[in-house]
């Protein structure tokens, strides 16, 4: 009677590998490495575009002069000049820091600020570099920015982001994986921004504020980075819209 070939027996410290085990292991090794390579391809190419936000360089003039609104977050009000309308520019610092402390000391003064813009569509933020100080020669009378214009009560659907990352300082700078980072930015004083799914007066980005115009209330940190429906008044300061949230819509959002 012919004896069938013996099934191989192999333990790692043996010198010889039986032919059948060697064959299976060679196939396994090739499959193993091939699968890893293929998985890397597929999972890497699964990456979504982070969107259009990006660093947009320093202001064309090098520095910008204006006055500072402290609430809800530091905003530089730049007076209109021939050929360019008045602007309200949100300010943030380096890293996940805001500039409230520095801005506080500059209240009621004419201020020069240098830095870099981050920009995504009509969302724009100036990241203050080294320079943010009172002008050496203060003008006799400060330009008085236009009073905020009330645009009424709105119910908006969208996502609360930190304005800096959403504008392109981080790519991607929105979404759930970024939520903790967004919360850190907002707690650190970076202006939070509401990205609305539908525009108001042609704008989809709003600086977040509390109902009384102060910083965003802390309970909204639980609502960042997820679709949410919020209610409140919208006001315009020059070219910036501020969303003064007074509550979450009862019948919508998460």
């Amino acid at each position: 009677m012919l004896k069938p070939p013996e099934r191989g027996f192999f333990v790692g410290y043996f010198k010889k590998v039986p032919a059948d085990i060697r064959r299976l292991m060679l196939v396994f090794i090739a499959t193993f490495i091939g699968t890893f390579a293929a998985a890397a391809f597929v999972l890497a190419l699964d990456t979504d575009s982070p969107g259009s936000g990006s660093f947009a360089g320093p202001p064309p003039e090098g520095e910008i002069t204006g006055t500072i609104d402290l609430l809800p977050y530091p905003v530089l009000r730049v007076a209109a000049s021939p050929g360019s309308p008045a602007r309200a520019i949100m300010l943030a610092g380096t890293g996940k820091f805001g500039v409230s402390d520095r801005a506080e000391k500059l209240k009621g003064k004419s201020v020069v600020v240098g830095g870099f813009f981050v920009k995504r569509g009509d969302l724009e933020m100036l990241l203050v570099g080294g320079k943010m100080k009172a002008e050496d020669e203060q003008p006799a009378d400060l330009p008085v920015p236009q009073a905020p214009e009330d645009l009424g009560r709105w119910r908006l659907t969208g996502e609360i982001c930190d304005g800096k990352c959403a504008a392109g300082a981080m790519r991607p700078g929105t979404g759930l994986a970024h939520k903790a980072c967004a919360n850190l930015c907002i707690s650190g004083g970076v202006p939070p921004v509401f990205v609305s799914t539908a525009p108001v007066e042609g704008r989809s980005f709003f600086l977040m504020a509390s109902a009384d115009g102060g910083p965003m209330p802390a309970w909204l940190l639980n609502k960042t980075a997820i679709p949410v429906v919020l209610e409140g008044r919208v006001e315009r300061r020059d070219d910036l819209l501020v969303f003064k949230v007074d509550g979450q819509a009862k019948d919508g959002g998460t």
Binding site: A37, A40, F41, L43, A44, L45, T47, D48, S49, P50, M170, R171, P172
Partner: peptide
């Protein structure tokens, strides 16, 4: 290597990501 070196060469979305 495939993920981090080849990926950004093939995909514009990856090249735009930090």
């Amino acid at each position: 290597l495939i993920f981090l070196k080849l990926g950004p060469m093939l995909s514009p979305a990856m090249a735009e990501t930090n």
